[in-house]
């Protein structure tokens, strides 16, 4: 970005697009009544988040976000939806409970937002003098296998247990008619 006229504006515009994508995706995921559209909103939100990660100088994390959340998690959710009934029946809830739930949700959401915003605005920000690592793949790999090796191993153990659990559930589900 050396001296091209309006490069700042272009970068700011792309940043705004990323933010807008994230917010729009989240809104679609939360507001729509069709569950398949919620998943699409989630995917859109993840793509926007990946853009934000890219702006934070971690392209690896951005691509991982797309690979894992859009390519794997959302696909799994859609697959689960497909196994369920294709025609989702309209929820027959009493209007009173809906209003009560919405009010409680609004108050809680507002409180959390206010608290986080206050923390972010009032809390002290310690600015690192230099960037710790360059966020590249070798740096991440070295960090995972030295500083965070314990957490890394524990996570793989948890995943292994989860896979075994899924196998056990599938096996018992199959033998019982």
């Amino acid at each position: 970005m050396t001296g091209f006229p309006g490069s700042e504006a272009i970068v700011a515009g792309i940043f705004l697009v990323a933010v807008a994508t994230t917010v729009a995706g989240a809104l679609i995921a939360a507001l729509t009544t069709r569950i398949i559209r919620s998943v699409c909103g989630l995917a859109l939100c993840c793509v926007g988040l990946a853009g934000l990660y890219y702006f934070l100088h971690s392209p690896f994390l951005a691509l991982m976000e797309i690979l894992i959340y859009v390519g794997a998690v959302c696909v799994t959710i859609v697959f689960a939806i497909m196994l369920a009934e294709p025609e989702e029946s309209a929820a027959q809830e009493k209007r009173g409970t809906v209003w009560l739930g919405s009010a409680v949700g609004l108050v809680l959401g507002g409180a959390i937002f206010w608290g986080l915003a206050r923390l972010g605005l009032a809390g002290p920000w310690s600015v690192p003098a230099t960037r710790v690592t360059d966020g590249s793949v070798p740096a991440l790999g070295v960090a995972l296998l030295t500083t965070y090796s314990m957490a890394f191993e524990l996570i793989s153990l948890v995943l292994l247990v989860a896979i075994l659990g899924a196998l056990v559930i599938a096996r018992t589900g199959r033998t019982q008619p």
Binding site: I36, C40, A43, P59, F60, L63, M64, I66, L67, V70, G71, A72, C74, V75, V78, F79, M82, S136, V137
Partner: peptide, 20 residues
């Protein structure tokens, strides 16, 4: 410098699209 990863990240969207 993470080109190979980019290929597979965006390649995985294909499934989602056909499914939609």
């Amino acid at each position: 410098n993470v080109g190979l990863l980019l290929l597979f990240a965006f390649g995985s969207i294909n499934v989602m699209a056909i499914m939609i």
